[in-house]
């Protein structure tokens, strides 16, 4: 029997897989090219100059880890919070570059740096869409086919009732 929670869970699974593969693809695209990613990070002129190399290495690794966690459904809500924070930082980076009149490519899937034709509006709406998915994953408590469901199984009231009644039955039968 299909319930509302089931439906929300299946939608959550779809969101998890989509967002997970997006982050995995973004991380894998940037990981082999730290110098280009560093150039992209410096293009935003937001972080201190010395932090750019470390950020250019840490960000793809974080994206790959978060992507894997979302796909597996492991620590889903924590991963979704981290993903939402990451997307918020990307949104702030893109919109602040736009507000300051910089002409850069977002470098979200590799590349980056100066660009004659920046796509700030499209990048902003795309990231807002992904942020909406991350927020959904934070709000919905369970998604389907997630490792969380196996590892952190919660005892529902009905199960408690069942175990209590079964205890009574056992006591009754033994008496």
């Amino acid at each position: 029997m299909r319930t509302r929670a089931d439906l929300l869970g299946w939608i959550g699974l779809a969101g998890r897989l989509y967002l997970g593969f997006v982050f995995l693809a973004a991380g894998l695209a940037k990981l082999p090219e730290p110098a280009i990613t560093e150039q992209a990070v410096r293009g935003y002129q937001l972080l201190p100059w010395q932090l750019a190399p470390a950020y250019a290495i840490a960000m793809p690794i974080a994206e790959i880890v978060l992507g894997a966690l979302l796909i597996l459904g492991l620590f889903t809500r924590t991963a979704a919070v981290a993903t939402a924070l990451g997307l918020c930082s990307f949104l702030v980076g893109i919109t602040s570059a736009w507000a300051r009149g910089l002409n850069i490519d977002c470098g979200c899937f590799g590349g980056g740096g100066a660009s004659a034709d920046p796509a700030y509006l499209a990048d902003t709406f795309r990231d807002l869409g992904w942020l909406a998915i991350a927020v959904y994953l934070i709000l919905v408590r369970r998604t389907k086919l997630a490792l969380d469901n196996l590892l952190f199984r919660r005892v529902t009231p009905s199960e408690e009732d069942y175990s209590e009644s079964s205890k009574k039955t056992e006591l009754g039968s033994s008496a």
Binding site: Q45, L46, S89
Partner: peptide, 8 residues
């Protein structure tokens, strides 16, 4: 993030 971005 807000403080840093506002400053920049």
């Amino acid at each position: 993030g807000v403080l840093r971005t506002s400053w920049v």
